[in-house]
Amino acid sequence: MNLLLACHITGIYDVNRSTTLPDDSYELIQAWAESVAAAKLKGVLFHNNFSEETCARYANEYISFVRIDYNPTFNPNVFRYLVYLDYLAKCTESIEGVFVTDVSDVTLAQNPFTHSLYIENPSSLFCGDEPKLLRNYWMMAHGEHLRSQIPDYAEYEERFASDTLLNCGVFGGHYPLFMDFLQQLCDLHETYNHSNKTAYTGDMGAFNYLARTRFNENLQHGFPVNTEFKAYENERTDCWFRHK
């Protein structure tokens, strides 16, 4: 079994959108759900505020809804990884591959699990990226808290300053490699990011830090994993995921 996982937490101020998302608006995740179902893949949408009526209306043989209790110790961007890890660790079915994505600005364009690049690289971490370098003004601000907590974070920023900025809005891989990465990512957040009081979530910082320092030789990013970030290439079908 292959899985696509996403998380939709509402009622909490979203620092990336500068707003609080409405509780029961299926329209926010509709494009994601319909694209996954159209590919006949199993998608699991974790949520904290969809009504039972909404879940019953839109659940189908491909898309399922799982209610979660949000823990405000972590911001929603970070808490989703703990949700995924808990779900996968308790899953009794055999899982071959997993991708996790943002949900309101990502849609599936191709089935990644049948692509030769995916099949032939079981030890790769596939992820999105952006047309930016890791050292940029936003990432420097985003990393403020982690820089004060992780001993070699500043060293990592210097070492990989000229490398492509990876985007955690889309990542996945074969189950063993993916679970190894996800476990380490959750460990980082639970150890270093639980006390983050800055205006930045730390999800991009922790993701890039872990991917570059411990999985750099395993990375496959950019085409064909994702369209160009924020280029709004909504008609492209040559990538696995469209991301804004």
Rank of each mutant, 00 (worst) to 15 (best):
S35F: 10
F50K: 07
Y26C: 03
V44W: 10
S25E: 14
E34S: 13
L21I: 03
P22E: 10
L45S: 04
F46E: 07
E27M: 11
A37V: 03
N48T: 00
C55E: 15
Y26H: 05
D23C: 06
S35E: 08
T19M: 11
L21Q: 02
E61A: 11
S25D: 15
T19H: 08
Y26F: 14
D24Y: 00
V44Q: 08
N60P: 06
N60E: 11
F46N: 06
A37K: 02
L41W: 06
N49F: 00
E27W: 08
K42L: 08
P22V: 11
L28V: 03
S25I: 13
C55R: 13
P22T: 10
A31E: 14
N48D: 00
F50W: 06
C55S: 15
S35Y: 04
C55P: 15
H47W: 07
A39L: 10
T20P: 03
N60H: 05
A31N: 15
A39T: 05
A59R: 12
E61F: 02
L41N: 08
E34L: 14
L41I: 09
T54P: 01
R57G: 05
L21G: 03
K40S: 14
E53P: 01
A33K: 07
Y58M: 08
W32V: 02
R57W: 09
Y26R: 00
A31W: 12
N60W: 04
A38H: 10
V44N: 05
D24Q: 04
E52C: 06
L21K: 04
Y58Q: 08
L28Q: 06
E34M: 13
A38N: 11
D24H: 02
N48R: 00
I29A: 01
L28P: 00
E52G: 14
L21A: 08
A33M: 08
L21E: 02
Y26P: 05
A33T: 13
Y58G: 01
K40V: 08
H47A: 09
E61G: 14
A38P: 02
K40C: 11
H47K: 05
I29F: 06
R57K: 15
Q30D: 10
C55T: 14
A37Y: 01
I29N: 00
S25Q: 13
E27H: 12
S35G: 04
I29P: 00
A39C: 06
P22Y: 05
K40D: 15
D23H: 09
P22C: 11
L45F: 07
E27K: 14
W32K: 04
N48M: 00
N49Y: 00
L41M: 13
A31K: 15
D23F: 03
T20W: 02
D23N: 11
C55M: 15
N49P: 00
D24W: 01
A38E: 14
Q30F: 13
K42D: 09
A56C: 13
E34Y: 12
N60S: 11
G43M: 12
W32N: 03
N49W: 00
S25P: 08
A37S: 15
Y58D: 04
A38V: 09
P22I: 12
E52H: 06
K40P: 09
H47P: 12
E53N: 14
E52A: 10
S25V: 15
S51W: 00
R57H: 15
N48Q: 00
R57M: 13
E61V: 03
T54I: 05
C55L: 13
T54G: 01
L21D: 01
A37R: 03
S35D: 06
F50Q: 08
I29D: 01
Y26E: 09
A56F: 09
K42P: 07
